[in-house]
């Protein structure tokens, strides 16, 4: 049985029924890492929110999302909250908004433990500090006692990572986890994510618009365009032999290093006949 089974997922928003997702189906096996790439507005984040049960109330959802065999769509908030942070957790793009600015980081990470495992605060503290060390923070004690604004972007993002991993979830959803970071910090966070996923054996749905980043973490990639999945395959196949014109365009635009400085870069439209999609 697959860990996550999404079948024919469709999402519409508001009274005007704006279609955000249309017939999206995919599965994630235990321990598998699946990348989801596409441009802004293509439906990547909505897919993640649907799995987390975090869609706004004006969303009309159809289809099915099964996690470990249980249907998630239609579950009430109490049932969803039990799974969120425990079976499935999420790493958001912007660590400053994902953390509570008024609460010390250690307490925020411990909250996830206390809610799901009922751990007392003493042992929780030990677990939190150990987890912060595991995601590569040099001074975990100090980080645990800091407020989010006292940390750098990379430290904050790793604190979020610790929060997402501390209950050893079966599935971690990462939504553009390194987009807001510098290249050097990005490289480090990706490496820590890679190590943490390997050691915990968790599966991962990794959302990004950056092909190079997805190739660092994932083996399988889905390409999303206008709310549909247009191509799926191994990282290698997608990069060496992309089929859909949009994927061909994405691969070409991502390779800045293949173009002599100052020369015209290929754009996605080049790969559609007639120059328009």
């Amino acid at each position: 049985m697959s860990l996550l089974e999404v079948s024919d997922l469709g999402i519409e928003f508001g009274r005007r029924r704006v279609r955000a997702l249309d017939g999206v189906s995919f599965t994630i096996e235990p321990g598998q890492r699946l990348g989801l790439i596409g441009e802004s507005g293509s439906g990547k984040t909505v897919t993640a929110l649907a799995i987390m049960g975090l869609l706004p109330p004006n969303a009309v959802v159809s289809g099915s999302v099964r996690l470990g065999g249980d249907e998630l769509l239609g579950l009430n908030e109490t049932e969803l909250a039990k799974r969120r942070g425990n079976l499935v957790s999420m790493v958001f793009q912007e660590p400053m908004t994902a953390l509570d600015p008024t609460m010390r980081v250690g307490r925020q990470v411990a909250e996830v433990l206390r809610l799901h495992a009922g751990t007392e605060s003493g042992p929780a503290r030990e677990r939190v500090v150990a987890m912060l060390a595991e995601v590569g923070l040099d001074d975990p004690e100090r980080v645990a006692d800091s407020f989010p604004h006292q940390l750098s972007g990379g430290q904050r993002q790793r604190a979020i990572l610790a929060m997402a991993l501390i209950n050893s979830p079966d599935l971690v959803i990462c939504d553009e986890p390194t987009t807001a970071l510098d290249v050097t910090v990005q490289a480090m966070v990706l490496q820590k994510l890679d190590e943490a996923l390997t050691s915990s054996g968790a599966a991962c749905l990794f959302i990004t618009h950056d092909l190079a980043v997805v190739s660092q973490v994932c083996d399988q990639v889905m390409v999303m365009l206008d709310g549909r999945i247009v191509e799926t395959g191994s990282v290698e196949k997608l990069f060496t032999n992309p089929e859909h014109p949009y994927t061909r365009g994405l691969v070409a635009t991502a390779r800045l290093d293949q173009v002599a400085p100052g020369q015209r870069l290929p754009v996605v439209e080049d790969f559609y006949s007639g120059g328009r999609r």
Binding site: L211, A212, S234, E236
Partner: peptide, 10 residues
């Protein structure tokens, strides 16, 4: 640190 496409898989 510049992320590069790993076309051979991870």
């Amino acid at each position: 640190a510049v992320p590069r496409i790993r076309s051979t898989g991870r």
